[in-house]
């Protein structure tokens, strides 16, 4: 197990380096955007004097590297600064929205992960049957429709026509948990449709891939029933790629849901990030991107560790 701890430490270290590079990249990308915060905030009404006055107030007249290192010095001590536009602390501006995003991601994941793995196993068992084909076409259709469009269709049938679920997922502080689940069902369902197909197909592929192995052939020749071959023999060795694709999709649920937020008016972090980019509000953009990057790195690490733990051969290297 010592190796594993060493591996985790090494990966965390590399992750920090990645975060640093990301922060430099994002900073200069925001610098390179045409126009600046003063023009963006004042809009059509900006005159040269007011723009200059605002730049001076925000300290934007100083050179870019100076501002980056100031930010970095703060970030290292856990202080991500204040929003340039509203003057609010970055942590409080992001806090509740990040929790909302996590909630929606968890909601979708709780539905999508078991369904897709189960379905994946079933279609691997019934491969090339009618059921396999139908499941294949359905899931492919659902991932190949743009997600905003899936959202619109769900709204049409489940909100406008039948009125079973609300079309808007705007949250209120005094909602009960059940109300919350009801209100956010449509965005969660949209996300489920988006990620299920990918996970299901990878589960199916990972299992079918193993079916040609000699040891499976052996089990089959011994007369083990097909479902037992898959669950007992193929699945344990297929966990690594499955965990990998699950991690990738979980990361997507957290970082890639801007469009779903827009369609369902859900107050998550993606909309905040897009707005902050439009306003050139660098501290917010930076903090959001780092949260996303950290999520991605941690989930990847978890997947790798999970793969090692579930694979006997990797757990006991030769």
């Amino acid at each position: 197990m010592g190796d594993l701890a060493g591996l985790i430490a090494k990966r965390l270290g590399l992750g920090l380096v990645t975060l640093l590079v990301v922060s430099v990249l994002i900073f200069f990308a925001v610098e390179l955007l045409p126009g600046d915060i003063a023009q963006a905030v004042l809009g059509q009404g900006a005159t040269e004097e007011t723009v200059a006055a605002m730049r001076e107030q925000l300290g934007l007249d100083r050179p870019a590297p100076v501002r980056y290192f100031e930010w970095l010095a703060g970030a290292v001590t856990g202080d991500f600064g204040t929003s340039l536009v509203s003057g609010e602390r970055v942590s409080s501006a992001i806090g509740t929205r990040f929790i909302n995003t996590l909630f929606l991601a968890a909601y979708a994941a709780v539905i999508a992960v078991p369904i897709s793995i189960l379905l994946g196993i079933v279609v691997a068992l019934l491969r090339n049957s009618l059921f396999d084909r139908v499941a294949n076409v359905m899931t492919l259709t659902s991932i190949s429709s743009p997600e905003f469009f899936l959202g619109y269709i769900l709204i049409l049938y489940l909100a406008v026509k039948t009125g079973m679920f609300p079309a808007l997922a705007n949250l209120r502080a005094d909602m009960t948990f059940v109300e919350l689940l009801h209100r956010t069902f449509l965005p969660a369902l949209t996300l489920v449709l988006v990620v299920t197909a990918h996970m299901m197909r990878m589960t199916r592929a990972a299992i079918i891939n193993l079916l040609a192995s000699p040891y499976i052939e052996m089990a089959r020749l011994k007369g083990t029933p097909p479902w037992k071959v898959i669950v007992r023999h193929a699945l344990p060795n297929a966990w690594a790629p499955i965990i990998n694709v699950v991690a990738l999709n979980l990361a997507y649920l957290i970082t890639g849901v801007v469009l779903v937020e827009v369609v369902f008016v859900y107050p998550g972090i993606g909309q905040l990030l897009v707005d902050a980019v439009a306003k050139r509000d660098f501290p917010i953009v930076q903090a959001c991107c780092l949260i996303f990057a950290a999520t991605f790195i941690l989930l990847n690490l978890t997947a790798d560790v999970g793969a090692i733990l579930t694979n006997p051969r990797l757990r006991h290297p030769k």
């Binding site: 590079v21 990301v22 890639g256 801007v258 996303f292 990057a293 991605f296």
Partner: peptide, 9 residues
């Protein structure tokens, strides 16, 4: 680095 920045952003 490229993968850790969300694609849409």
């Amino acid at each position: 680095v490229i993968m850790s920045v969300p694609s849409l952003i």
